[in-house]
Simulated assay, not measured.
Amino acid sequence: MEYSKSQATFPAPERPRQAPGRTRQARSPELHQERAVQTRTQILDAAAQLFDERGYGGTSVKDVADRVGMTKGAVYFHYPTKEALTIAVVEAHYERWPLLLESVQSKGLGPLDTVMELLDRTAEAFCDDSVVQGGARLQMEQPLPDGVLPVPYVGWISLLEQLLVESEEAGELRPGVTPSAAACALVSAFFGTQHISARLNRRKDLVQRWAETRNLIFTALRA
């Protein structure tokens, strides 16, 4: 069966609502300038690093300011509350995945190999990208009131199910494998591996641990 390029896409997470009692700061024209964008990026990266290292409760705006060598007022100019900074890190975390999927799909792989390559590249991102790391910890903690941050993992399950349905149609799945169940198993295996590696080894062994887990799972999935 001839396979055409996958059209699977990440479902966009529902945009977080503002934390109760908070309002967004109006964007100044200065924020459109290159320097302001660079400053916001520096603050976001520093906050993501700290959230990953210490968690939401162990990170203050002063900690972020100290990490980037700014005053608290400078940080508040760009992110008016700790909650706004938290939301920004999580939103930036989610923005990574559609771009990564697009890059993987450009290789023209079959759907099952697309799943494998996507998860391999995601493991690398968890090792190298501070925003991915910080956003992941915040998603696990869900430190803000219900509905402020997106529900984690459901977008991944939906995407992988789409790709596994395409794999089934292309004759790549082992008979008896259900795409929806396999998608849940893959997401559980990947993020469980990521979490254990993060807690025990600061993700230094994540790529290796994931490769071991992936080889076992895909042996069971592939026709």
Rank of each mutant, 00 (worst) to 15 (best):
T23S: 12
P16N: 05
L44E: 01
R214D: 00
R15A: 11
S103R: 12
L200Q: 12
D146C: 07
N201Q: 12
D113I: 03
D146T: 05
A125I: 02
W97Y: 14
P13V: 03
V187H: 08
P20I: 09
A46L: 10
I43G: 04
G176L: 14
G58P: 00
G110A: 10
P98C: 02
H93V: 01
L200T: 05
E91T: 00
R137M: 10
V131N: 01
E166G: 07
L112G: 02
L216I: 15
Q194G: 02
V131P: 00
V154C: 10
S167W: 05
V37Y: 04
E168C: 09
P20Q: 09
Q49T: 06
Y94F: 14
E212F: 15
D45W: 00
I157W: 06
A223W: 09
V154R: 14
I87V: 13
E172T: 01
R22L: 13
T81W: 07
Q139W: 03
S188T: 15
A211R: 14
L109H: 03
T219S: 15
S103L: 03
V132H: 01
A181G: 14
R96A: 05
Q208Y: 11
I43M: 09
D52L: 04
S130T: 00
S180F: 09
E169N: 12
P150N: 12
N201V: 02
I157A: 12
L206W: 02
A92C: 07
K82Q: 06
R35A: 15
I157G: 01
R202E: 11
A12M: 08
G69E: 10
T213C: 15
G155T: 01
A223D: 04
G155E: 08
T81A: 11
K204C: 11
D63T: 05
Q208R: 14
K204Q: 14
R35K: 13
A88E: 07
H195F: 15
A48W: 01
A211C: 03
Q49F: 05
L206A: 09
S6L: 08
V75F: 07
R24S: 13
Q38V: 00
H78R: 12
D120Q: 15
A211Q: 15
E166H: 09
M70Y: 11
N215Y: 08
E2Y: 11
A183W: 05
A223C: 07
D128G: 04
T41C: 06
K107C: 04
L149P: 00
H195N: 15
A182C: 14
R137T: 01
L160R: 07
T59S: 08
A185W: 11
G155C: 10
K5Y: 06
S197E: 04
G57V: 02
I87Q: 12
A182I: 14
Q25C: 05
R203Q: 04
L216E: 13
V151N: 09
A88Q: 07
G55S: 00
K204S: 13
L160H: 11
S167P: 00
S188F: 13
D128K: 09
R67W: 04
T81K: 06
A223E: 11
D63E: 06
S197L: 05
G192P: 00
L164F: 02
Q42C: 03
A26C: 04
E34V: 14
R15Q: 09
T81Q: 05
S106T: 01
G21D: 10
A183N: 03
G58H: 07
R54Y: 04
L44H: 01
G192L: 13
A88L: 08
D52S: 07
G134S: 02
D129M: 03
F10A: 11
I217A: 15
H32L: 13
R222H: 10
A36D: 05
Y56F: 12
